[in-house]
Design a protein around this nucleic acid. Structure first.
Length: 182
DNA sequence: GCGACAG
DNA sequence: ATCTTGTCGC
């Protein structure tokens, strides 16, 4: 397994240019070493079409890897007239339980995503948007289906586990170990 | 020019 | 994202 360095800085609106190369390499390795585990869909920590230029991280990875993707953002990125203003804040306050949500509609009337409360005890919502080869309805269904806490497990575990991995001071490439098959 | 700004 | 004190609830 080869290493890959993150060379690009994080610039709001350009997250994909920093993250996509590494993600593509990861999928490439997965396809070569454990094709059985190649994902049918990927939930990404970022946005899909809910983006200033309508094409966020989830869209870019989806197209380049030719895999269905969903964007899961923890905070709203201002795009196409959709902003976290008082009106938006009021709507968020009305989301009472898991599954409650409202569509994020652009200034041209297009639905770019969904502000969704993914858990009964989560005060803050998540922002779900289509990445590639999947509908918003299916995206929201998936997000809810795998939400044990505010953030869908695939995204939350990737976040928690990777941070723990680095905390241990490990610097060598992550060694993929295929789970025992059933 | 000023503020806002996924992770 | 990261850092960091304190607080609330299961």
């Amino acid at each position: 397994m080869e290493m890959i360095q993150l060379t690009q800085p994080y610039i709001p609106g350009f997250l994909a240019f920093r993250e996509v190369p590494a993600l593509l390499k990861l999928l490439e390795d997965l396809k070569a070493n454990a094709p059985h585990y190649f994902p049918d869909v990927i939930l990404l920590d970022g946005n899909g079409i809910l983006h200033p230029r309508g094409f966020g991280l989830a869209c870019q990875l989806g197209v380049l890897a030719q895999v269905p993707t969903v964007g899961i953002a923890k905070t709203l990125i201002s795009a196409q007239g959709i902003v976290d203003d008082q009106n938006h804040k009021n709507k968020k306050a009305e989301l009472k339980e898991a599954g409650d949500g409202f569509e994020l509609i652009s200034d041209t009337g297009e639905t770019l995503g969904m502000c969704l409360r993914a858990h009964d005890k989560a005060q803050n919502p998540i922002y779900v948007s289509v990445g590639h080869m999947i509908s918003l309805r299916s995206s929201v269904w998936l997000a809810l289906e795998c939400s044990k806490y505010r953030i869908p497990e695939p995204v939350r575990r990737a976040d928690v586990d990777s941070r723990e991995y680095l905390r241990q001071g490990k610097t060598e490439p992550y060694e993929f170990i295929a789970p025992v098959e059933n």
